[in-house]
Amino acid sequence: MAFYRPARWQKPFAFTVLCALLALPGLMEIFDQSYYIGFATRVLIFALAASSLNLVLGFGGMVSLGHAAFFGIGAYVAAICQQGGIVEGLLAFPLAMGVAGLFALLVGALSLRTRGVYFIMITLAFAQMVYYLFISARAWGGDDGLPLSERMQFAGLSLTDDKVLFYVALGLLTAIMLLLGRLADARFGRTIQAIRENETRMEALGYPVFRYRLVCFALGGAIAGLAGALLANLTGLASPALLQWTQSGTLLVMVIIGGVGYLYGGVVGALVLLLLEEFLLGFFAHWHIVLGLLLIGIVLFAPKGVAALFDKHRSQP
């Protein structure tokens, strides 16, 4: 895999999409399709979660199968905050990021000492631990999850209005994508990509590899926590299902469909997968069979994901 370099059309294209999205809620209301505002918000939130995994997996080269833990923790922190009377997102969201990031730091510190198959299994096991912790904790709703009695606010604006929630999600996604785009090109992004390519060589150049990996892992966890907090607001529930390892698998699938290590890989993947789900599920209740076959097809025939199919100048060795 080569180092990330944005295609020339990427920035204007992203900007155009952003403008179109700004108009989306208004258009949906005109055509009386308000349901799809919620759906679009869901896509944005999963785009954020998948992008955070892409930072860890695509840029950092760490195949983590425990990312849902950070996502879910974010959701639970939001729900606990809301129940505890902290309803301002400007306070609760950073808190969700902080808790998820700290936990990621802990998991990373233990698991990043291992490699390969071991690392995958350990991240998975720790995520499962969080899942069991939450479903057996009656104070946090156990199996049923923890509901939010009401959506939170963001900078004083109530998120109860679907449109406001949509714009907040869009704003946060845009901000994070901007950060990730800058980061990929800055020293840190260079460093983690180089570590992904050749860890020993970086060590031999004097880089404390473990530390960079750990920070990347924790940063990814924190961003996933933010996505979780948003999702809890959208659905009104911090559900243990968010913590399940199959959720980690779904995020992984999104990143791979979208293109591992491409800035917008997570966004594209979330959009494609959620659209497929939304429309195929209606036709064929067992659509997971189709999805599964599709994924095996991707592995065998298009290992670099969908985004790579549109990329001309990343064919370097």
């Binding site: 800055a186 840190f188 992004g189 460093t191």
Partner: peptide, 8 residues
């Protein structure tokens, strides 16, 4: 190398 913003 913990610099996240300035392009290399």
């Amino acid at each position: 190398s913990f610099r996240f913003w300035r392009p290399v």
